[in-house]
Structure formats: C-alpha cells, structure tokens
Design a protein around this nucleic acid. Sequence first.
DNA 1: CGGGACCTTGATTATCTTCAATGCTAGTGG
DNA 2: CCACTAGCATTGAAGATAATCAAGGTCCCG
Lengths: 240, 240
Amino acid sequence: MTVLSIRPGGGPAQPLINLLSSLSPLSDTDATMVRERLGEPRNHPSAAEIRFEEGHGERPLMVAAGWAAEVSLLEDGRRQIVSLHLPGDIIDPAEVRRMNLSAYALTSVRTQDANRVVAAATSDDPACAALAKAWRLHRHMVQARLVRHIIRLGRLTAYDRITDFLGELHDRQRRAGMADHRSLSLPMTQEALADHLGLSIVHVNRTLQQLRRDSLIDYQGGRVMVRDPAGFAASLGRTG
Amino acid sequence: MTVLSIRPGGGPAQPLINLLSSLSPLSDTDATMVRERLGEPRNHPSAAEIRFEEGHGERPLMVAAGWAAEVSLLEDGRRQIVSLHLPGDIIDPAEVRRMNLSAYALTSVRTQDANRVVAAATSDDPACAALAKAWRLHRHMVQARLVRHIIRLGRLTAYDRITDFLGELHDRQRRAGMADHRSLSLPMTQEALADHLGLSIVHVNRTLQQLRRDSLIDYQGGRVMVRDPAGFAASLGRTG
DNA sequence: CGGGACCTTGATTATCTTCAATGCTAGTGG
DNA sequence: CCACTAGCATTGAAGATAATCAAGGTCCCG
C-alpha cells in the first residue's frame, strides 16, 4: 500500500486516488489526471433517488462525500441493498439500469461526473497505463465483494454477517484513507443495514447489542470503534 | 431470439453458440469461428475438483457437458456454491482464483479449452464484431445473475428461492437450446441445491415436496416438469 | 447381498421475523 | 422556552421459518 499517497485532506478526489493507489501505485501525475478529469459536483439529499439522465447520456458518478446504495425493490415492498458506494467509489448508471436496480442516497451525498476519469482508466493510452492497471484491480475488487456478499447471505449467521460486513467496511475506508486502525464510520440506519444483510431491523438491533456486549465493538452516532481487532477478525467465517 | 440457430444436435459447441445468439444474432461464420477455436476435450469425474494448471497458464474452459460449480469452502466445513456452470458456460480460472473459490464437477463433466474463443470474443477485430457484442451481453448476464442471487439469498423465503432459481435455470437451458417450454434438467443433489440456496438439505427436501404438493412442478430423476408455468412465474418475488 | 450415496421423515431446537409499544433525539413552530 | 412531531433505536412477547439431530428408506452398483 502506497502510504505516502494517503492524504485525507487532498480534495474530493482523494478517496478515489487513495483507493486506486492502495491496489497499484500511482504517481503524482496519475493523481493529477484523476483530479483534473472530475466534473461538476452535484448534491443529493438524504434518502433521494440518484437519477442519471442529466442531459448527455448516462455518465459514471464518483461519490465525493456521503454514502449511496444500489437497491432492488421487490413487489411486496421489501428491498435488498445490493451494494454500497462510499466516498471514492464510482457508480455506473448503465450497470444500475441493466440490473434493474435504483440508486439512493443513504446520507446526504455529493457526486462528481467521473466520465472522463473512467475513460482514461479504460483507455489503452500508455500515459494512462498505471491508472488502467489500478482500475482493473479495482473492478476485480468490486466483483469480489459481490461474491463475498453471496457467501455472507448464504452461509453466515446474523452475527457473522454483521462482523464480516464491518470488516469489509473497515478495509474499504482504510484504503480510501478515511478510517484509522481502530474505528470506522457507519452512517446508515439499522433499517438500511437490515436491507443489506438480509435481516429484519429488530434482529440487526439485537445483534449489534450482542456485539457490544461481547466487547467486539462500540457503536454510537454512526461510528463503530473496534474494541477487539483480534476477536473481530477471528469471529469471521472465513473463506478458504 | 434467433430460433434457427438452436440446434441441440450441432456438436459440443452448440449450447454456447445458442446461448450467445440468444443475446445477439450470430451468423454461420460466427458459429464456425466458435466451433473451430475450441480446444481438446477433457473429462472430469463427478465430485472432482476442476483444476486448471495444465501446462500453459490458466485457460478458460467451456463446459461441453455436465454441470460444474464455483464453490467457497468455509473453515467450519460449510460451503457456498456461488455460481453454476451449465453446458455452454465458460469458466474463467483467473476469476475463480481471484475470488478464492474452487471449481467442482457436480456431475460428470466434459470441458474444452476455450482460450481462443474468448480471445476472439474480446478482440476488436471487425471480423469478430458480432461475437464480441454477444460476448459483452453474455458477461452482463453473468453479472446480473450474481446480483439476482444476492436478492434471492437476502430477501426471498426458501420456497421463493427455489422457485426463482428453477426459473433462472429454465431460462438458461432454453437459451442454450437444452430445454423445452415445460421442463428442465436439474442434475444436482439436494445437498448441492442447499449449498447454493443457503439452506439445509432437509429444508430443501421439504420445500421441494411443498412445490410438488402445490402442483407447481414434478421432480424426479434429475428432471423438473413445470406443471403450472403461470403460477410458477407468479410465485416469484420479482424485482421492480 | 452388502455398501454407499442420496432422499425422506419425525422430533426438537435455534434463529429470525413480526407485531406492538415505548424511548430518544433533533428539528419546528407557537 | 416548550410542546409537538418525525425518524430512528430499543424492548418484550409471540410465532414462523429454518436448522439440527437421528433414523429409516430407496436405489444403484459392484
């Protein structure tokens, strides 16, 4: 991990740059390329749907601040949050549409048009080679998260689902330079948590309390403190 | 759907050709291109792991006959079948390795090296344009299946999971020209079904019986007859 | 005929959901 | 400043869904 490049205060593009360079080293030139290619910011109020038909086609959006989610709404009103977008993540509208999902702001969200960034990252211009490599690894990571979520939902208990999920969030936030060794932010309601983890609100609430009672975490005000990193990692039903 | 191209007896490549042309029309030339680029067949006994280190790197394999699965093994012996490979599907060893999965033969399986097919389908040679388009759509479909499976596991009951899953299998087999309007093959044990759908064997067994009692399906000898296509589709907790 | 893999069944228990309140806190308007 | 409201978190009780445990049963194959 290129520690040097992790500068949380480096502007709205910094989480994305940190994220990419945590996968494959980027030069300052690469970082600048990302920064300069981001488009105008846009704000989405909490709980609003994030729509994409903004004039010229379906452009990828980078989440600059706040959390968003890709959601499947079922006929009976149930919903499944398929994936989450944290600062630094990029939402691909074409994919959202193809999968029959919708995107929602879980908190107040600020996005920026990332069309030109994605274009650079997927071009075969040698000047973008480092960016392209990091981007490929990033895509792989995104896909691996889907697979991991299938394993979570299919074979882990509520307790392990939450632990495993918090572990994933911690890793993601650290890569983006947005969390320290011991804590992570969790600015989503227990209802959203339930809809992501395939559980009821009530059960999420009780399981979180259990985690607190077991002294694995503290949780309040949208922030999780990892009290026992060892026990935390150990309690995961790990894949082999 | 290009009905003309669906010829179940057209050799081992036919399922793949049917599958691709169900997504985007292929000419006879395209079909020939696929057929001629397939490598030597290889047999995998039922329940064996499908390994890839065969001399020259990790080459994609097309399933020519039988069913395979990508599996995650958990420490405690539980397992999750993340995805299934039916005839016509292509297994990407690089992906299996990246996701920390392993591939197993659920039945006796015959595969063929599909490296040159994938190369053609992902090239930008204009001669492969039709193939490339179908391939892109196919990749999208594969990804959509992962998302759909997340929704199944997260928000559907055992009964609906099985119904929805059978619906998916029916669609896949029809695209490959390997099933008619009313029936599909299901050559996997109830244990494998359980490991895919995140349920216990016993519960899968009882739920299948419930489906039979409700006259939605008949099920015996690895074959499912769809008795009530309307009720079948209606019972699905559909995404919107 | 014996063994093994798979399917089926009953009984019991655990996990998780649902329903129905009750708190808590922050923002709002009087 | 103080009700008042809305959204979220929490709690208890009851019930449904699914897992586990422990046998049998069936079928195929050597």
